[in-house]
């Protein structure tokens, strides 16, 4: 599969990663080679094999419904670049 300029732009916008003009051609090569590998994998006959969503199955992985009282908001907010009045602040994003 070929990666067109349009597909590359779409990937860039979905992942919110800006792609500089000068690396575009190298990136296209890389992405195409990844897709080639996937195409190679798709050739394997998997009929009769049940899809697996996770290598581990059947484990006790549930939690009781008990709420903690220990929410240390002030401490957590130290990690954020900008907060005010208990809010986390981000550049204005209006949908």
């Amino acid at each position: 599969m070929k990666i067109s300029e349009k597909i590359l732009d779409n990937i860039s916008s979905l992942s919110k990663i800006r792609i500089d003009e000068e690396i575009k051609s190298d990136l296209v090569k890389d992405l195409e080679s990844i897709l080639e590998m996937v195409e190679e994998m798709n050739k394997i006959d998997t009929s009769g094999i049940e899809p697996m969503s996770h290598p581990l199955e059947e484990a006790d992985n549930l939690r009781k419904d008990i709420a903690t009282k220990e929410i240390k908001r002030d401490e957590y907010q130290k990690y954020a670049p900008q907060t005010d009045d208990g809010f986390y602040l981000t550049p204005k994003v209006v949908e």
Partner: peptide
């Protein structure tokens, strides 16, 4: 395990998992 109460002070019900900090893991509520 953060509480789900409605109408509380902003971010007082948000744990590290809810904040999406690196290294935290979700554990499903049965």
């Amino acid at each position: 395990n953060a509480p789900t109460k409605f109408g509380q002070t902003q971010n007082s019900q948000a744990s590290l998992v809810d904040l999406g900090l690196p290294g935290v893991l979700p554990v499903l509520n049965e």
